[in-house]
């Protein structure tokens, strides 16, 4: 069966992982780019998917020179685009099976 291992990363480790400042992390969470397990906790905990999202957001922000609000929107649209592309590929393959 599927074994579920939850790995969490605390904000101190995250500062090092993603080279992100306290203030930026607060901005990022404020814009809903990533969510800690408990926003009220003294030290935030993030799961791996959130860490990946944060690292990507930090990189995109540096590379595109866009503010956090822009990054939040870009990430949302990019994730949606990725999903649609994947769905489109899958549907195209299914269609090919039905066509002669």
């Amino acid at each position: 069966m599927v074994s579920e291992v939850k790995v969490t990363v605390c904000s101190t480790e995250l500062y090092q992982l993603a080279a992100i400042s306290d203030q930026d992390l607060a901005e990022l969470v404020g814009h809903g780019i990533a969510q800690p397990h408990d926003q009220q906790a003294v030290e935030w905990q993030f799961d791996e998917a959130a860490v990946a999202q944060i690292t990507r957001a930090v990189r995109l922000r540096r590379e595109l020179q866009v503010d956090w609000a822009g990054i939040a929107l870009a990430l949302e649209l990019l994730n949606e685009l990725e999903g649609l592309r994947r769905e489109n590929d899958a549907l195209r393959r299914r269609l090919e099976r039905l066509e002669e």
Binding site: M1, V2, S3, L17, E48, A49, V51, A52, E82, R86
Partner: peptide, 30 residues
């Protein structure tokens, strides 16, 4: 590779990326 992985899913291999400089830890492989 854990059973039940899905397309696009990322698996993190901690510390398997490029070595750190100085005392810093190695990066990760996704």
């Amino acid at each position: 590779i854990p059973a039940g992985v899905t397309d696009g899913e990322r698996i993190r291999l901690k510390g398997q990326g490029t070595a750190g400089v100085g005392d810093m830890p190695a990066g990760d492989v996704y």
